[in-house]
């Protein structure tokens, strides 16, 4: 595990999450929410771009953000599966967005003191954005959970669908050398805080913590859900149909 792989994994988390969120544009339950989701997608895409460029620099093989985003195959993408899960209904999207953002926030808070200066700088910017994203997610979890009977059911359904992918967030995939060098922290160290926050909000929202089996995961090893191939096909087809073209 080297620094390139770490940064690329973080970049892929953001890129794929942004791609999914962008699918909501012109489809949200209210126009104000279209604007809000697009804002969150833009923040997330912005983070992905900086990280991809940084990964390319570390690698030193001349690959830029687009080479990395558009020309890698599915097995080379190392985002967590949570990021790529299909939008489903609004409750599922909110469940994914909320769990993802909470986890990301703890992660980037830890990276504010990274010895990798670019990561530390990205962290400073990201935590401001992510606090907003978490807050947006939490507001909706509470409103859907404690709204109507229908919304309660759907919010719970959304959580149940996404929850099997939570365990993967905390499995160890970063090298001990990077932790020793102070580049990153171990993902497992984020778990207690995340789970505490989730439990608190789930309770407030009159929902219950899902009792569902965990899936094997494997995003960090390039093993993805079946929906990932479609996501990449859509995202990459233009760049791949016109090799070498500038856009």
């Amino acid at each position: 595990m080297n620094r390139f792989a770490l940064v690329l994994g973080l970049a892929d988390d953001a890129l794929i999450a942004a791609q999914r969120l962008a699918e909501w544009v012109a489809n949200a339950p209210e126009l104000e929410e279209d604007v809000a989701l697009a804002n969150i997608a833009l923040d997330t895409l912005g983070r992905a771009r900086v990280l991809l460029a940084h990964a390319g620099e570390i690698e030193g093989a001349g690959r830029n953000e687009d080479d990395l985003a558009m020309l890698r195959d599915e097995r080379e993408f190392t985002n967590v599966q949570l990021a790529e899960l299909e939008n489903g209904h609004f409750g599922t999207t909110i469940a994914r967005l909320w769990l993802y953002s909470t986890w990301q926030l703890t992660w980037w808070e830890a990276l504010t003191s990274s010895t990798d200066e670019t990561l530390a700088a990205v962290a400073q910017k990201s935590i401001k954005e992510l606090r907003y994203h978490v807050d947006h997610g939490e507001r909706w979890v509470r409103r859907l959970g404690d709204g109507t009977e229908v919304s309660h059911e759907r919010m719970q359904d959304g959580l149940d669908r996404v929850w099997p992918h939570v365990a993967e967030l905390f499995t160890n995939w970063v090298g001990t050398d990077l932790i020793e060098q102070g580049v990153t922290v171990a993902p497992a160290t984020l778990e207690a805080r995340c789970r505490e926050r989730w439990a608190h909000v789930i309770n407030e929202a009159t929902l219950s913590t899902p009792q569902v089996p965990t899936v094997p995961g494997g995003g960090r090893r390039g093993i993805h859900t079946e929906s990932m191939g479609y996501l990449l096909a859509e995202m990459q087809h233009m760049a791949r149909s016109h090799p070498g073209a500038t856009w």
């Binding site: 699918e23 279209d34 604007v35 833009l42 771009r49 991809l52 859509e234 233009m238 760049a239």
Partner: peptide, 23 residues
């Protein structure tokens, strides 16, 4: 076209633009 934009820069621009239209 947002999900299919050929570069990430174009994707960001287009996303911001379509968001403006909602605005």
């Amino acid at each position: 076209w947002i999900t299919r934009a050929p570069s990430l820069r174009r994707k960001a621009i287009l996303l911001a633009k379509v968001q403006d239209e909602a605005g």
